[in-house]
Design a protein around this nucleic acid. Structure first.
Lengths: 163, 163
DNA sequence: CCCACTGTTTCGTGGTCGTGAACCGGGTGC
DNA sequence: GCACCCGGTTCACGACCACGAAACAGTGGG
């Protein structure tokens, strides 16, 4: 089961930022006289101190459960070139859609550059680095989606969840 | 904004059941010595008593926000050419209504230009780009509705929520 | 008669995609 | 330690084309 981070506020707000950036589920323990907390997403919760250990444990478990659910989300690419991921979506350009197809198909694992080239340009790459350029453009499109296109040096690319 | 119900546990667990059944967002105020609470869905939260009013208010607001987000509204097009979306509405011109029909029908996914043309002008397009012009007028009518007519280049259009 | 509706044209703009080049970090051989 | 290269990233440019907006005109209903 996914780990949940616990931070004390307002002391550890730096760490909170970091956890948010990395998409890790987190529980804030808010000091007695600090202002109420406002979660920024569904992977965040808070309790007012002092809190019973059982209460904290309960919230941590709830967060872990939520995180596991959200991990099961998979992107989907329709033949109208709509890429959906949760409630987020974009319309992909034709080239981007062809490239994205095998990546979505094998979501979370590595797709070789050769295979990507084949998918994007069935009759040969037009130029030496057109694949890289196109991958760059694809990456830009995924901004704010919760999806990331990771590169595995000399192996290929992998589409995965994360920012 | 959506209303949030507040119940006291364990006293009012009957009411809690009812609220869950009806899908209303709810905050449980849990008595000091009652066991920790486990939310059953995302429209549920809890706080241990005694709790500061500000804390309760903060959680109620968070729940209301979540409820609004998760609210999935669909537009509706009546026979007398009224397009409704939530509490917003417009009267559409005949041509706009014919165009809008398939878009509303397949809300959130792409409708091909061919299909749109067929819907708007059953016996052939009067001119090369009259479809584009009409789509433009339609867009203008949707201003401020919370609906947007997105174009998927060389595929068609998709009606979706957003501004 | 006026005004909403709709067809038509023209022109602008913004997305798409190939291409060349600069850049950069890590690894390798000397 | 140093130069070098390899794999990858990013930029800017330009051609092409689908689409969008504005402006104008004809028409028909209230």
């Amino acid at each position: 089961m996914t780990d949940v981070a616990v931070v004390r506020l307002p002391d550890e707000s730096r760490q909170l930022e970091e956890l948010r950036r990395r998409g890790i589920p987190r529980l804030a323990l808010v000091a007695p006289h600090a202002p109420p907390f406002t979660p920024v997403d569904l992977l965040e919760d808070w309790v007012r101190l002092p809190a019973a250990p059982a209460d904290v444990r309960s919230r941590v478990l709830a967060l872990a459960g939520r995180a596991d659910e959200s991990l099961e989300r998979r992107p989907e690419l329709t033949d109208d070139r709509l890429l959906r991921y949760g409630r987020w979506w974009v319309a992909l350009a034709p080239a981007d859609a062809r490239l994205m197809a095998p990546l979505v198909d094998r979501f979370g694992s590595v797709v070789g550059r050769g295979e990507l080239a084949k998918a994007g340009w069935p009759d040969g790459l037009p130029s030496r680095n057109s694949l890289d350029v196109q991958l760059g453009r694809l990456r830009r499109r995924l901004k704010g989606s919760g999806l990331t296109l990771h590169t595995v040096r000399s192996r290929g690319c992998a589409l995965a969840q994360g920012n």
